[in-house]
Design a protein around this nucleic acid. Structure first.
Length: 291
DNA sequence: TACCAGGCTCCTT
DNA sequence: AAGGAGCATGGT
């Protein structure tokens, strides 16, 4: 058993497979902040503050059931890492990413965040999403909830430009309006992956990569393998040259099957932090620094 | 200064 | 079907 719950509290026992820093900083989520030794994360209208002490992690939160699901606590990542190793995922990536988990985020929030993410940097995505929330999110008691589709639909292109979304502004307006008008955000949770991806790609600003991120982080569809520039680099290094991200995604999804999403996240996190082509020194240094 | 970032849209072949 | 220019913005 990895954890126990109390009122507005989750205690995660010492584990190689829960590291709040890896979980939040691996690029899957943009609404978090670190103040001192406390990591805060905002999800929808919910909020959690996690502190690591003596190996275990204490999480104070608005709703412990919500965050048990959010942090994917009922899954055994030790077994997942073993299976991924058997399937040929780079050992160094599995070791580096130890403690990482795939979050289960709100679909609409994930959709919007990853539209912002296209051709963008994680630090900038964070800042932009934060401005979006403080401008349009309701007060949830000392912090802002993620804006509703209605609130986002009521804002115009100029607003989205003013918070720094640049050329993505019209995508956000149109997508928010489609959702506010009742576009289906349920079916991606259960349709076959190809159909689900197609549905999501119908939203302006959503292509195959953003759709796959929404499927993975918003719906828990771990059979998809989002392929961005880092994953294309990783593919080139470990599986052979292929510059088309859609082909990379298909190829790696075929290799890793139901575990694709996990494989992808370990790889992404590893590539982003330990690239530099001769990665040995960088890897051990970063890992030590973090321990 | 160029190049790049969790890419997509639109226009040519 | 496949390939490439252009795109806002800011960091290195």
């Amino acid at each position: 058993m990895l954890y126990e719950t109390g009122k507005n509290r989750i205690t995660v026992f010492p584990s190689e497979d829960f590291d709040i820093r890896r979980i939040l900083e691996c690029g899957q989520v943009f609404r978090y902040r670190k103040t001192g030794d406390v990591y805060e994360v905002f999800a929808g209208r919910e909020h959690a503050a996690a502190r690591n002490s003596g190996g275990k992690t204490e999480i104070e939160c608005t709703d412990e059931k919500y965050f048990v699901k959010y942090f994917d606590l009922n899954r055994n990542y030790g077994i997942i890492r073993l299976k991924l190793r058997d399937k040929g995922l780079v050992r160094a990536a599995l070791d580096f990413g130890k403690g990482l988990r795939i979050l289960r985020q709100e679909p609409f929030e994930t959709l919007v965040s990853f539209i912002v993410s296209q051709n963008n940097r994680i630090s900038r995505i964070k800042d932009t999403v934060e401005r979006l929330c403080s401008a349009l999110g309701e007060d949830a008691g000392g912090y802002r909830a993620f804006p509703s589709p209605a609130a986002m639909a009521a804002a115009d292109e100029d607003f989205y430009r003013s918070i720094g979304t640049g050329y993505r502004a019209p995508y956000l307006v149109k997508t928010a309006r489609l959702v506010a008008e009742g576009a289906d955000l349920d079916s991606p949770g259960f349709l076959p992956a190809d159909e689900a991806r197609e549905r999501l790609c119908a939203f302006p600003g959503v292509g195959p990569k953003v759709a796959d991120c929404v499927l993975l982080f918003g719906y828990g569809r771990t059979e998809v393998f989002p392929a961005d520039t880092w994953i294309v680099k990783a593919c080139d290094r470990y599986w052979g040259k292929e510059t088309n991200p859609v082909k990379v995604s298909r190829k790696l999804a075929a290799t890793f099957g139901e575990l694709s999403g996990y494989a992808q996240q370990y790889l992404f996190d590893y590539m982003r932090n330990c690239d530099d082509q001769d990665d040995k020194e960088t890897t051990s240094q970063t890992t030590e620094d973090y321990l």
